[in-house]
């Protein structure tokens, strides 16, 4: 029973979602897709509490056992509750509550969270440089072709490089756009996308039919 009911739910939900695109959205069956999506949001909302419990328990355990870096765990717990509690309190009680401009949540988001996210994203530039260095080392014929192609494409994508390429004989930007990006690159990407789409469809079918049950803890 513990497995049968989830399999029936997965079968019915999967069947509805797989067939819904073939019905008009203004009839009851076509509209079921939207209905199920809303259910997912509602279920997801309920499980948010699980996340809060997990993050609190993991960090609180580290603090009470004085594990290495426990001070950071205290900071994490303070941050979680400092953001969450004022944001769920009614703004009618105070303008500091809720999520509007001028609230505690808004201040923390604009002045702490947002710059930290931007900083993390910005570090990507350095990671790309180190990964590119490793990927483009000309150790074989294939790696050398990759190095030359990547250098030309990167040069073409920056204003100064485009300016230089336009002044060289032969329409290099056109050739890069047509044969490298629109030809080889596009063909490979489409191959991967078609394969991935079929893989996703095959896995969906295995789930709908109850053949694949690992996602619910059954081997």
């Amino acid at each position: 029973m513990r497995t049968t009911i989830p399999i029936i739910v997965a079968f019915l939900s999967g069947l509805v979602l797989a067939l819904a695109p073939f019905f008009r959205e203004d009839n009851w069956f076509g509209g079921l897709k939207q209905e199920l999506t809303e259910w997912l949001i509602i279920v997801g909302g309920f499980t948010l509490l699980l996340g809060v419990v997990s993050i609190t328990r993991v960090n609180w355990t580290a603090v009470t056992r004085r594990k290495e870096g426990w001070g950071y765990k205290v900071l994490t717990l303070v941050a979680v509750f400092a953001m969450a509690i004022p944001s769920v309190l009614s703004p009618e009680w105070s303008t500091l509550f809720g999520r509007a401009d001028g609230s505690i949540y808004d201040w923390l988001f604009v002045n702490l969270q947002s710059p930290m996210m931007a900083t993390m994203f910005a570090t990507l530039a350095f990671y790309i440089a180190s990964a590119a260095y490793r990927a483009f080392r000309a150790r074989s014929v294939e790696a050398t072709i990759l190095l030359i192609t990547a250098t030309l494409v990167m040069l073409w994508r920056v204003p100064m490089g485009e300016w230089i390429l336009e002044r060289l004989p032969g329409d290099i930007p056109y050739l890069l756009n047509t044969y490298i990006m629109g030809g080889a690159n596009m063909a490979v990407q489409r191959g991967i996308i078609i394969g991935a789409a079929l893989g996703a469809a095959s896995m969906s079918l295995r789930i709908i039919l109850g053949i694949e049950r690992t996602y619910m803890g059954k081997g």
Binding site: I192, A196, G199, S202, M203, L205, I211, E212, T214, G219
Partner: peptide, 21 residues
């Protein structure tokens, strides 16, 4: 890459019924 991700669970299971898909 791509489809290999979806094949992984079936591949690791070594179960014939999973490889049918």
């Amino acid at each position: 890459m791509g489809e290999e991700l979806y094949a992984a669970s079936a591949y690791l299971s070594h179960e014939p019924i999973m490889t049918g898909g």
